[in-house]
């Protein structure tokens, strides 16, 4: 055993070695009994120094904690004495007692914990704030006030902006409504511009000299309304039939049968059965009951 190993053993006794140095010492100790004994001896010498430490009472529950730790870590014989010899009955009783004791102890621990938890829950909340924490709390409160103030300012600005936007939206909606109304008016004006009103009076046929015929024709939609007044009755088995005369078509296009009431009045909406142009003329003839596809009977009224 050389001086270096003595140094290592001395420092090891005081727990001063690094891990690699401890390995060196352990390795040397394996082959050197003197060194091994020397190390053990110095460890005991160093441990004697603990006699000079001022004693401190551990927490009162420490013994229970140790027993609990022994049980939880499965330490053999924890909480049981192995120093007594029992007979078979005694062992059974001792075992039962031990199990019961452990169970009761665990129950007691649970109850203690529950009571402590309930006590904590029921304890009045009296926050004790150390002075440093109070200072921090004040700082936090001031920061919160500043943040709140900023927030209120921004909130007010946003409210103003939102109000302005709402007003603009209202104005815009009103303007849109106005534009829509104008567009509608223009549309109606346009539609009206496409309307054609045809009238016929003073027919050259004697029975129809007092008859009046008005046709309102929408050239865009290719449909119209017919009004007849003072119309004489037709013979049974006969009907009035309206015709649309398109100059681009060789024959008049039927617009349907017109039923005249007892007063000689008729009002019908009509639509030609075939496509016609925008600018057309109208004629009314007397045809077979139910109408015919191609005019056959006499034309009694013709529009201008």
């Amino acid at each position: 055993m050389d001086e270096r190993h003595e140094e290592l053993a001395a420092m090891n006794a005081l727990g001063m070695l690094e891990s690699d140095e401890k390995r060196v010492l352990n390795g040397a100790s394996v082959a050197d009994k003197d060194l091994r004994d020397f190390s053990a001896e110095l460890e005991l010498v160093a441990s004697e120094l603990a006699r000079l430490i001022a004693p401190v009472e551990p927490p009162s529950n420490m013994k229970r904690r140790i027993h609990a730790k022994m049980r939880s870590s499965g330490v053999k014989g924890a909480g049981l004495s192995r120093g007594f010899v029992f007979g078979s009955i005694g062992w059974a009783l001792a075992a039962s007692l031990a199990v019961a004791s452990v169970w009761l102890w665990q129950e007691r621990e649970k109850l203690v914990q529950q009571v402590a938890a309930v006590s904590r829950a029921m304890a009045p909340v009296t926050p004790v704030v150390p002075s440093t924490e109070k200072k921090e709390t004040r700082n936090i409160e001031e920061e919160l006030k500043i943040l709140l103030s900023d927030f209120e300012t921004k909130k007010a600005a946003l409210s103003t902006e939102i109000e302005a936007l709402r007003k603009r939206e209202t104005d815009a909606n009103a303007r849109i409504a106005q534009l829509v109304a104008e567009a509608e008016a223009l549309k109606q004006q346009d539609e009206r511009s496409q309307l054609q009103i045809a009238t016929l009076q003073n027919s050259k046929i004697w029975e129809y000299r007092r008859c009046e015929m008005i046709v309102v024709w929408n050239g865009g939609k290719r449909q119209g309304v017919l009004l007849l007044d003072n119309m004489p009755r037709v013979d049974s088995g006969m009907d009035y039939q309206l015709w649309v005369i398109d100059p681009n078509k060789p024959d008049p296009v039927s617009a349907g049968v017109v039923e005249v009431n007892a007063k000689g009045v008729a009002k019908i909406a009509f639509k030609p059965v075939d496509v016609v142009g925008e600018t057309v003329k109208f004629a009314l003839s007397v045809e077979k009951k139910g109408g015919v596809p191609k005019a056959e009977g006499p034309i009694v009224l013709v529009g201008p």
Partner: peptide, 20 residues
């Protein structure tokens, strides 16, 4: 040898110095 009471007594004797 497994004497729990002896262990408890040993705890009473040693624990203050060891805790210190």
């Amino acid at each position: 040898r497994g004497d729990a009471r002896a262990f408890d007594r040993l705890y009473d004797l040693l624990s203050p110095r060891l805790f210190g």
